[in-house]
């Protein structure tokens, strides 16, 4: 293929990087992938900000102000935005805290739970402002495609990517569509 490679960015917001680990599970197909794409911002390149891209893949939901900044940067720069994994799609496990008062949550973690020096809730201006609820990314920006799973399997990710990169509407087989 002589044309310009497709530019791809990925990031993890309020996620566990499990989707990124699963992405690596495409194993040697990564070699096929780099024939087709060039990575922009992603944990693989360690590029800190996203430039103009064809495809952006976002793992994790939105739990603090920094997540929103990164998400908006992705939406602004990526022609096609993909939500990958349960957290990006419905808040996922981080949203288990949505029905617990945020301050109760902090106290439980930093003050009542043993093992943390000092027992104070961190309050550094460098730390992003946490939200009282975790939200899926489509409640903040427009999302073009969804790839569910916790995480989606390497095969599901490969199927999705090969469809998308070939310009087809991504479609999973029945056994590749999972919410767990």
């Amino acid at each position: 293929m002589s044309e310009r490679k497709i530019r791809l960015a990925t990031c993890s917001l309020a996620g566990c990087f499990g989707c990124h680990m699963s992405f690596l599970d495409i194993d040697e197909r990564l070699f096929d992938l780099v024939e087709l794409v060039e990575f922009d911002r992603t944990p693989l390149t360690d590029i800190k900000h996203c430039g103009p891209c064809d495809v952006g893949i976002v793992e994790g939901g939105v739990c603090n102000a920094e997540n929103v900044h990164v998400l908006k940067e992705f939406r602004k720069n990526c022609k096609v935005l993909v939500a990958i994994g349960a957290c990006a799609i419905n808040g996922g496990l981080p949203s288990l805290r949505n029905n617990i008062d945020l301050w109760d949550c902090f106290q439980e973690v930093y003050q009542y739970e043993g093992g943390l020096e000092g027992g104070v809730v961190p309050n550094d201006p460098e730390l992003p402002l946490p939200f009282d609820k975790v939200h899926p990314i489509y409640e903040v920006v427009k999302v073009d495609f969804f790839l569910p799973g916790c995480p989606p399997s390497g095969d599901a990710i490969w199927r999705f990517l090969t469809d998308l990169l070939a310009g087809r509407e991504p479609k999973l087989d029945y056994e590749q569509l999972h919410f767990d």
């Binding site: 939500a83 799609i89 419905n90 808040g91 029905n99 609820k133 489509y138 569509l177």
Partner: peptide, 22 residues
């Protein structure tokens, strides 16, 4: 519920979440 969602090809819940207290 999940199986019906799979059958209908639900890729996301689409609507804003209520996150009700239950």
């Amino acid at each position: 519920l999940q199986a019906v969602a799979y059958y209908l090809g639900m890729m996301s819940p689409h609507y804003n979440h209520f996150y009700p207290q239950r």
